[in-house]
Design a protein around this nucleic acid. Structure first.
Length: 274
DNA sequence: ATAGGGCTACGT
DNA sequence: ACGTAGCCCTAT
């Protein structure tokens, strides 16, 4: 007799994720009235968004480990201080948030792309950020190598090439199109054994990039709120590292392709150690 | 308007 | 029978 339950479609989920990236968690009404997302969410109320986001956060968080019913998020604040498990360390680090940068910051090992998105997402300036600001932001939160600025600029260039970022004058910002409205890729909930298309580089690279975007969502969420279980952070780490590897291969392939198409002879030397 | 607890339809 | 996820209720 109660009402029928209407399952969320993947389009709705994507719109919600993108909405959270753009407006932040808790801004459900804003997401709902944003013309960018509204078309996908006509059947949902702001409360629905809140509930759905809660469910998504929970299911991302518990992934593989213990599935005690009490891991419902609220335990973080009460127990984090007493039991030093990895999970709680992360929760704690995120709860203190802001400018806490203990030397063993759990996220210091995150992939650079993830850091870049993290930086750009937390700067709400619609003009974007210049490279100096990005470097500064990341240095605040993570330990970086000596040549970081140089490294960063090549990463940024790459992301612009891929259409993930937009460069205006000397400022970089996240391209809206990259945040979901673009492709209605079905993208089912991971876990599934997904038949790996052995057909090629492009497809797999795109898939990985998609995963990297998801990782960015999670990181954005971690900064906006104070919870995201260790599993999610670890996964974000793993995935963004994969994405960077794929990036390199993709870029290399592109260069080779361009040289070939100009009729140049391309020589490849294989001297990897692994 | 939002957060969090509670209820329950639905799929195993 | 049980867990999950969508929906409802209430305090803030």
């Amino acid at each position: 007799m109660g009402n029928q339950k209407v399952k969320w479609t993947s389009e709705e989920e994507e719109a919600l994720k993108a909405g959270v990236v753009k407006h932040g968690t808790g801004k459900w009404k804003n997401i709902l009235i944003d013309p960018q997302f509204a078309p996908y969410l006509t059947n949902r109320s702001n409360i629905d968004l809140k509930d759905k986001w809660r469910n998504m956060s929970i299911s991302y968080g518990q992934c593989s480990r213990e599935k005690s019913k009490a891991s419902r998020v609220k335990t973080i604040s009460s127990e984090a201080l007493s039991t030093p498990t990895t999970e709680n360390l992360v929760a704690e680090a995120d709860a203190v948030d802001e400018f806490s940068r203990s030397p063993r910051d759990v996220r210091s090992a995150l992939g650079y792309n993830a850091m870049i998105f993290e930086a750009l997402l937390s700067v709400k300036d619609s003009n974007g950020s210049n490279i100096g600001a990005i470097v500064e932001f990341i240095e605040q939160k993570h330990e970086v190598p000596q040549n970081f600025r140089r490294l960063l600029s090549s990463k940024l260039r790459r992301l612009v090439l891929q259409g993930k970022l937009e460069k205006v004058h000397n400022c970089y910002k996240i391209k809206d199109a990259a945040l979901g409205t673009k492709t209605p890729i079905p993208k089912q909930k991971d876990i599934r054994p997904r038949p790996v298309q052995n057909s090629g580089l492009v497809i797999s690279a795109e898939t990985v990039e998609d995963a990297a975007m998801t990782a960015a969502y999670k990181i954005a969420e971690a900064d906006n709120k104070s919870f995201v279980a260790a599993e999610a952070v670890k996964e974000a780490d793993r995935v963004s590292t994969m994405a960077e590897d794929a990036d390199s291969v993709l870029l290399l392939a592109k260069e080779i392709f361009e040289q070939c198409s100009r009729g140049e002879t391309v020589r490849l030397a294989y001297n990897r150690t692994c």
